Every structure is written in structure tokens, then in C-alpha cells.
Amino acid sequence: MSAPANPRVERVEAAGQAPALVGESPVWRVAEQALYWVDIPAQKIVRLVVETRERSEWLLPEKVACIAFDRRGTVLAGCETGLFAVTLSEISTDATAQAVRASEPVEVTGRKLAAPVFPCGDMRFNDGRCDRQGRFWAGTMVQDMAAANPAGALFRFDAQGVLSAPIVDGLITQNGLGWSPDGKTMYLSDSHPLRKQIWAFDYEVETGKPSNRRVFADLNHYVGRPDGAAVDSDGCYWICANDAGALLRFTPQGKLDRQIAVPAIKPAMCAFGGRNLDTLFVTSIRPGAGANEHDGHLFAVRPGVSGLPEPEFAGEL
């Protein structure tokens, strides 16, 4: 499949007219043909069945920043105080219920699975996803980005329910997790304006241990800040260039080979989905001031390359 020179970027109107404050962590569920994502400060998980335009929302007791699923459909959620198992309640599909849920998300609670010892206050989990073997990885950050506090760290939560000690520390705004198709390279970014780095690691698939950390791409030399990411079937790394309204695609050698403009100034994270995993869905953030009509909405682009199914958590929640 040849990549279009300037693929069309469309706003997904079925995702809702009300923009997200901080739209993050899109996850495509192949079994449901549905896209899930979160709105962090709104404490919501959102689901959209793209073909039927059926939309659902669930409200959590605290901020939720990243999600993954186990094989039964239970959500593993990285929140403010720890990692939680969340069962999303069934929602009636009749017309009355659909009208109600458009304005009233269903309230759900979660069971705490694990929590790190936060080195200071006002912290939460941020970007997270499963590696190719189904281990869940997520990082923490100080919520006040202006503080530029490098108290954040990256953690691994395995199928046995054990949360690791910090694997990578000294992070200000952890982001950009991803793995190569063979699982042998791990990617990680720090999106803070003082960092703007993407790193690559050698990754031991049997043990889940990263090593040989090196700079993969220094976004001080490109546009924007490196936010959430996705890896395509060619092994190329797609990163949302926050503050620049763009998607950047880097080859496995760290060379920028594509740049696609999106209408929102702060694209946050991307994920491949659709019937053939050939649609790249992009969530975005609505800035506190100077927002345009597209900021905070969900977008879809057909970049001419397909993605890989999102791995499920290997344990049972």
C-alpha cells in the first residue's frame, strides 16, 4: 500500500460535540470494533462503536489517564492513586437509554490493584499500555507541569499482579510508550518543554527488561513536543507533536519520513483501528486559552499503512 502524500484528516463527529479537556489513551478493541479513550480531568472513559456511531461514557471516582484491557474486557486503568481494575457496566441500547447516557455517564468504581510510593504530592499516572507479551507499563508525573519536577518514573505491572520498582526514573512528563513489532525495542518519551526527548531501549521479551537507553529522536530539532505514540506494521513510530498540530512518523532508524498536519493544536495520542487497522485515530487536548473549534476532539486519518492489534493484559483482573 503506497502512502498518500497528503492524507485527509477528518474529525470524528460521532465522538461527540463536547470537546474533551484532555483526550488521551485511545485503544482499539478488535473484538468490539470499538475505540475507547479517556478524558483525564473529566474522570471519564469513553467508547465509540465507529460503524454504528454508538457512544457510551463511564465516570470514575478519580482522574484516569491510561487504559488497557484483559481478555475478558476488564479495564486496567492508571489513575491518580494507583492502578485499578474497572468493570464497565453494560448499558442498554434502547433509544431512551441512549438519550440519557449522552448527558449522564454511568458511574463506576474500581478495585485497586497496586500503587507506587509517590515521592511527592500531586502526582498521578500518565501514559501507559501493554507490551507485546501483555505486561502493563505506565509512568507517573507531577500534575503541575510548570513545576518541572523530575519525580516521575516508569513502572511495570506483570501478569502475576506485581508492580515493579521504578524502571526508569527522573522523568518530568512521561509519555510515548511503544514497542516494535517484534517486541525487541521499547520507546519512551518525556514531553516536557525542558526535555522533548524520545528514547529507544533494547527490550528482553522474556523478562520485560529494557536496557541500552539511547536518544531515538530529539524533538528540540523538530516541531512540537513528543506526546502519545503508536507503532505501525512497518515498525515505524508515530508520535503526536503536541503544541504543533502534527503527527510525526520516524523510521526504526530514527529518521523523520512523514509529517501530517491535524486541525487541533495539541494532538495527544494516536492508535490504529478500523476493520483493517488502517485508520489512525488521534485524541487531542483543549487548551485553557486560545482554543480553536477542533481542539479537544477526536480525528481519523488513513495514512496508507496499517497498525498492529493492541495487546491485552496477560493476567486476569
Rank of each mutant, 00 (worst) to 15 (best):
A3K: 15
A3F: 12
A5W: 06
V9D: 00
V12G: 05
A15I: 01
P19L: 09
P19D: 06
V22H: 15
G23W: 01
E24W: 03
S25D: 08
W28K: 04
R29F: 02
A31C: 10
Q33W: 00
V38S: 00
D39Y: 09
R47L: 03
E51R: 14
S56P: 00
E57Q: 11
L59Q: 13
P61S: 04
V64G: 02
D70Y: 06
D70V: 04
T74K: 12
A77L: 11
G78V: 09
G78C: 12
E80K: 13
L83R: 06
L83V: 08
V86Q: 02
I91R: 01
A97M: 14
Q98D: 03
V100S: 07
A102W: 02
G110K: 05
G110W: 01
R111Y: 10
K112N: 09
A115G: 11
P116A: 10
V117H: 12
F118D: 10
F118C: 10
F118P: 08
G121A: 13
F125W: 03
G128C: 12
D131K: 05
R132H: 07
W137Q: 00
A138D: 06
G139A: 10
T140Q: 13
T140F: 09
M141G: 04
V142W: 02
M145R: 15
A146E: 14
A151S: 15
F155Y: 15
R156V: 06
R156N: 08
V162A: 15
S164V: 09
A165H: 11
G170F: 06
L177N: 08
P181Q: 10
T185V: 15
T185G: 04
Y187L: 05
P193N: 08
W199C: 11
Y203V: 12
T207Q: 15
G208Y: 07
G208Q: 01
N212Q: 13
R213T: 08
A217E: 00
D218P: 02
L219T: 01
H221Y: 11
G228R: 02
A230S: 15
D232R: 06
S233N: 14
G235A: 11
C236K: 00
C236M: 03
C236S: 15
W238T: 00
W238N: 02
I239H: 03
R249G: 02
F250I: 06
Q253M: 10
G254P: 04
A261K: 14
V262T: 11
V262F: 03
P263R: 10
A268V: 07
M269H: 06
M269K: 12
C270A: 14
C270K: 01
G274C: 08
R275K: 15
D278H: 05
V282K: 00
V282F: 05
R286Y: 03
A289R: 14
N292Y: 08
H294N: 12
L298K: 00
F299E: 00
R302S: 13
R302Q: 15
G304Y: 05
V305E: 07
P309T: 06
E310Q: 15
E312F: 14
A314M: 10
G315M: 09
G315C: 06
E316K: 13
L317F: 14
